[in-house]
């Protein structure tokens, strides 16, 4: 498991260049271009279970969802950052990608430190120190548990169908 470390204000153009926004939409098309202008090694060497550790305002800029979709499909375990930009936070949640906002954990990291995350308990271990992060509100947890917003929406629509079919009691 590798920890990829980046600084503040990693924007959406760094995560996925805008020039591909209308030619790459599927995970297969997106993955080769992930972090292309920021770290050309990333797309080739990222492996399932890896973690990104970054500073403030991660994901700022465009509303394009390729960064969130691509990172999720590359099997990234989580992005741990001192802060996330709002639209990226929402996009990641909608893909079921785990984001951990924990400036203390980011500040404590030294090169080579092992990082372990326990999302259920809300704990992250960096080297020999453990930090806690707050639980998501239930409205958002339901989306993550369903595996993202589209599976969540499909469940909701099916439940409506079932309600419509069940005989009404009068």
């Amino acid at each position: 498991m590798k920890v990829w470390v980046y600084g503040d204000d990693v924007n959406t153009d760094s995560l996925f260049p805008g020039k591909y926004t209308y030619t790459c939409s599927t995970p297969e098309e997106i993955r080769p271009h992930l972090l292309e202008d920021l770290d050309p090694d990333f797309a080739r060497r990222v492996r399932p279970g890896d973690i990104i550790l970054a500073g403030r305002n991660f994901g700022c800029g465009s509303s394009r969802e390729q960064p969130a979709l691509g990172l999720k499909s590359a099997g990234l375990q989580a992005v741990v950052a001192a802060g996330f930009s709002r639209i990226f936070y929402r996009a990641a949640l909608n893909q079921g990608l785990l984001l951990i906002e924990c400036p203390e954990a980011v500040g404590a990291y030294r090169e080579g430190d092992p990082v372990e995350i326990d999302p259920e308990k809300g704990k992250i271990r960096v080297g020999d120190r453990t930090f806690t992060f707050p639980e998501m509100p239930p409205e958002m947890m339901r989306i993550v548990r369903a595996g993202g917003l589209l599976p969540f929406t499909r469940e909701k629509l099916k439940a409506r169908d079932a309600d419509a079919l069940s005989p009404s009691i009068e």
Partner: peptide, 19 residues
């Protein structure tokens, strides 16, 4: 602003959450 996935869900349900 929202992402594409949320726009897709909105086309079907017409609603979303906001904090």
């Amino acid at each position: 602003g929202i992402d594409r996935t949320e726009a897709a869900a909105l086309m079907l349900t017409g609603e979303t959450w906001l904090k």
